[in-house]
């Protein structure tokens, strides 16, 4: 089973009185355990596609199936619960909660998923250790470097052991060296935990690490490289 399937998905935004098509007739399967990159120029629709896959935006047309469930018909609360258990997010600006320590940021999705405190502690310890931040657990995000923050964000995305992790330009705000480290870390975590990663990125380093690259332009898929299907 594919962790994500899209069938003839379309999305149009309305800017004032003008309809702007963001995605048109997207039909796509994301492979289990794959490191998939959505690639395209700015405004091509890759972030919109990522948002639809992440169930934080809904299509105007077509069907989206994530982790075996059609998501476009789910009510908001059910969708929130679904995201909490099945999808991890990594953002370009890290989007850590500034008032929570690194450790608490990683723990927060587990709180939302209703995981008991002892189990939370165990999983957070393991993840902080895995991303190499055991000694920075009590630091607030403002006390961490960009690379460290993104490591915390990766640990947070993987906290609930979701089958799918989405990353929107995860290396865009990092220097190339740190970016390479982060890609290597994500790749390692993805393999260790057998998670499907989907990126939006035009970073060549990310492309080089990808199992599959989906090219998008003007809201349409123009090509797929390295697909396993």
């Amino acid at each position: 089973m594919h962790p994500v399937s899209l069938h003839q998905v379309g999305k149009t935004y309305r800017l004032g009185a003008v309809d702007v098509p963001a995605l048109s007739d997207i039909t796509l399967d994301i492979h289990q355990g794959a490191f998939t990159v959505l690639s395209g120029p700015s405004g091509s629709g890759k972030t919109t596609l990522l948002n639809l896959i992440g169930c934080i935006d809904m299509p105007d047309r077509g069907k989206i199936t994530v982790a075996g469930r059609q998501v476009q018909s789910m009510p908001d609360d059910a969708l929130s619960d679904f995201r909490a258990r099945h999808i991890g997010f990594i953002f370009q600006n890290f989007n850590l909660i500034p008032v929570l320590s690194a450790r608490e940021n990683v723990e927060y999705p587990l709180v939302l998923a209703g995981v008991a405190a002892p189990e939370r502690r165990k999983r957070v310890e393991a993840l902080m250790d895995a991303v190499g931040l055991s000694d920075r657990q009590r630091n607030l995000p403002a006390q961490l470097s960009g690379g460290q923050r993104q490591r915390v964000a990766i640990a947070r995305a993987l906290a609930t052991a979701p089958p799918l992790v989405l990353a929107d330009e995860p290396t865009a705000n990092l220097d190339s060296h740190t970016g390479a480290e982060i890609i290597a870390l994500m790749r390692r975590m993805q393999r260790e935990q057998d998670v499907s990663f989907v990126f939006s990125s035009h970073d060549p380093q990310v492309h080089a690490a990808a199992d599959e690259i989906i090219f998008i332009r003007d809201g349409r898929i123009t090509g797929i490289e390295g697909g396993r299907a």
């Binding site: 934080i56 609360d77 929130s80 995201r83 909660i97 939302l112 998923a113």
Partner: peptide
């Protein structure tokens, strides 16, 4: 971010 992570 909180909503994306699953907070209702």
């Amino acid at each position: 971010t909180l909503r994306a992570m699953g907070l209702r």
